[in-house]
Design a protein around this nucleic acid. Structure first.
Lengths: 223, 223
DNA sequence: TGCGCTTCTGACCGGCAGGACAAAATTCAT
DNA sequence: ATGAATTTTGTCCTGCCGGTCAGAAGCGCA
């Protein structure tokens, strides 16, 4: 998968015909992207400032701009870098496995993602809140087709009597909602619970509840 | 409930000892708050600009600033105005009713909220993404206690055998997540489905799926 | 050691952001 | 109709934002 939201100017490596990246270049770009993720995920595209990102990356603003000429380039770079990783577990769902194993595994992976990479999740929701202007193409093509693909798998499971008759796409939405909630609403959860999902006991309670309720809600009662 | 996040300067009415609001004052403040909701919910606090809100409210920036002296005042005003309304259905859940009716009703109300007032939902998530700096006090006190109160109700239902043994707080999180998802991720849903929850068929599919899965997931199997 | 390329910096620019302010226009009770 | 209070506007200020640029410093290979 490779997305290009009609970007004009890009980062150094590609701009120079992707000759070869120096050590310093690779290091700095990574530091910049990490810092950008942190700031963008908190304040959104407009609210984030290049100065802030530069400071967090430990370099001067002009130097950051040397690697990413425009704020917009930096934003799309961190967005696309994150997207593949974020969608990965979805592709791993095997259609020949049994639904209980596959879905339970997928939900658990998504919960782990929310625990281990909350910023990535928050970056996306920020973009979605804006109406997904930078991601619109990707969502309408790649995401849509991958969802439809998985929906077909779920439909087959339903036809085989392995799953109750539920709308597959809305089921996917439910899984995304309940799992990403622990990343996106971290501050709220922390206020109510006193701690977040990084706490092992909290994580266990969360995954037991989410997996338990969802699976009971879609699995036929056996025996 | 009345929140005051240690705000220094406030809006006109209260600043002038809440004498009496003129017709024009009431009208304009409402128009401003509506415009502010629109802009803040999209771009977050930092990303929103006063000029933009003023334009959307159909008045000059200095005139807007006449009603709300600071951007920050305007933000907290629209935030608190929304909060009561947003939490209202939660309080309506009666503890003497039976769980199926009460919970189904609550979930449906939340889904209707997501359909009818998506901006309000997005405003909150924007604040949560910021780490809830303006809402921290409210969340840790009011929200926390109301959640605990409802959790106690759910626990009683479980003790009476009317509900399966699930963690009450995480169940509440699941309900919030699955219902607010339709407001917060509107752009994503629209990309995948081609339409949002304002479409009656989509709303029906969403509520059937959400209510169906959740209720089957927590209700004891009878018969 | 020297030389070319990469990396980095300080100074600077135009534009726009939040906000102040005085004066003008409007409203309204009398 | 008039005067006080409310409402609205134009203008201006300061600071920050994204971005440019010329040149200095650093790096790696001969």
């Amino acid at each position: 998968m490779s997305y290009d939201t009609a970007s004009e100017s890009q980062d150094l490596a590609r701009a120079r015909g992707s000759k070869k990246r120096t050590r310093i270049q690779a290091e700095n770009e990574e530091r910049i992207l990490d810092a950008a993720l942190e700031v963008f995920s908190r304040y959104g595209f407009r609210g984030a400032t290049v100065d802030q990102i530069a400071e967090k990356a430990g370099m001067s603003k002009p130097n950051l701009l040397y690697y990413f000429r425009r704020k917009h380039d930096l934003y799309t770079a961190v967005l696309t870098r994150t997207l593949d990783m974020w969608l990965a577990p979805f592709g791993e769902m095997a259609e020949d496995g049994d639904p209980e194993t596959e879905l339970t595994g997928y939900i658990r992976q998504k919960l782990e993602q929310s625990r281990d990479f909350p910023q990535e999740s928050r970056l996306f929701i920020g973009e979605i809140l804006l109406g997904a202007p930078h991601l619109d193409g990707v969502l309408k093509t790649d995401l849509k087709s991958i969802v439809e693909e998985k929906a077909e798998v779920i439909r087959r499971w339903i036809r085989d009597g392995k799953l109750l008759d539920v709308d597959p796409v809305h089921l996917v939405f439910m899984i995304w909602a309940t799992t990403q909630h622990y990343a996106d609403f971290d501050a709220q959860i922390r206020s109510v619970l006193g701690r977040g999902v990084e706490d092992p006991a909290t994580f266990r309670a969360a995954s037991d509840t989410v997996i338990g309720v969802l699976m009971r809600g879609i699995l036929p009662t056996r025996g």
